[in-house]
Amino acid sequence: MERRGFLVTGLAAALAATGAPAPARDKPGIYYLPRKYVPRVVAFDRGRPGEIHVIPDDFALFFILPEGKAIRYAVGIGRPGFYRAGEFYVGAKREWPSWTPTRNMIRRDPETYGPYAGGVPGGRTNPLGARALYLYQRGRGDTLLRIHGTNVPRSIGHRVSSGCTRLINKHVIDLYDRVALGARVVLYPEA
Rank of each mutant, 00 (worst) to 15 (best):
A60K: 06
A60V: 06
A60T: 06
A60C: 07
A60Y: 06
L61M: 12
F62L: 05
F62M: 00
F63T: 05
F63I: 05
F63Y: 15
I64M: 09
I64F: 01
I64W: 00
L65V: 05
P66G: 10
P66K: 06
P66D: 11
E67C: 00
E67D: 15
G68L: 02
G68V: 09
K69W: 08
K69I: 04
K69L: 13
K69D: 07
A70Q: 02
A70I: 04
I71D: 07
I71E: 04
R72E: 15
R72S: 07
R72A: 12
Y73F: 15
Y73A: 02
A74H: 07
A74K: 03
A74G: 13
V75C: 12
V75A: 11
G76L: 06
G76C: 08
G76H: 06
G76Y: 05
G76E: 08
I77D: 10
G78C: 04
G78I: 02
G78T: 02
R79L: 13
R79Q: 15
R79V: 08
P80L: 07
G81Q: 09
G81A: 07
G81R: 03
G81L: 06
F82R: 12
F82D: 08
Y83S: 07
Y83P: 13
Y83G: 09
R84S: 10
R84H: 11
R84C: 00
R84L: 11
A85M: 01
G86V: 01
G86C: 01
G86N: 08
G86Q: 03
G86R: 04
G86I: 03
E87N: 05
E87A: 05
E87K: 05
F88E: 00
F88V: 00
V90H: 05
V90I: 14
G91W: 12
A92E: 13
A92S: 12
K93Y: 11
K93M: 13
R94Y: 13
E95F: 09
W96M: 05
W96N: 07
W96I: 00
P97L: 11
P97H: 12
P97E: 12
S98M: 02
W99R: 03
W99M: 04
W99T: 00
W99S: 04
T100M: 12
P101D: 14
P101N: 12
P101W: 06
P101C: 02
P101A: 12
T102R: 09
T102V: 10
T102P: 15
T102Y: 14
T102S: 15
T102N: 11
R103I: 05
R103K: 14
R103Y: 13
N104I: 08
N104L: 13
N104P: 00
N104V: 08
N104K: 13
M105A: 15
M105C: 04
I106R: 09
I106P: 04
R107V: 03
R107I: 03
R108H: 09
R108Y: 11
R108P: 02
R108S: 10
